[in-house]
């Protein structure tokens, strides 16, 4: 399998995993689930760091630094706000 085909296979298999994991969710959890998924795509931070590493021109560097700031806000803020929501769910179970 070529490298590109391997990446494509990973992509397709991930789609099915994504479909499977959330197929049954009560409405109560829609908001936290969306918020948690939102935080996960914050890993674009990894991509932003990669491009910042090999940025050479000022333009590239500026854009990648902005990307890092935005991605960090997405990732860190996302997980913190999701945890705050879920903390309350835990409280009422007692």
């Amino acid at each position: 399998m070529s490298a590109e085909m391997a990446l494509f296979s990973i992509f397709v298999l991930s789609i099915f995993i994504g479909f499977e994991v959330v197929s049954k969710v009560s409405t109560t959890l829609h908001t936290p689930l969306m918020s948690g998924a939102n935080a996960i795509h914050g890993v674009i931070l990894v991509g932003a760091i990669m491009v910042a590493d090999h940025s050479e021109t000022t333009l590239e560097l500026t854009l990648s630094v902005i990307a890092i700031v935005l991605a960090t806000i997405n990732m860190v803020g996302g997980f913190v706000v999701t945890d705050r929501m879920l903390e309350m769910f835990k409280g009422k179970k007692k």
Binding site: I10, V22, V25, H30, V43
Partner: peptide, 25 residues
């Protein structure tokens, strides 16, 4: 895919697929 990062592909696709289901739900 552009950056050749399996991790980003998996994470992004998971959110894309589960997010689509969630939107429908």
């Amino acid at each position: 895919y552009v950056l050749d990062s399996v991790l980003l592909i998996v994470a992004g696709t998971l959110v894309g697929a589960s997010g689509t289901i969630l939107t429908r739900l």
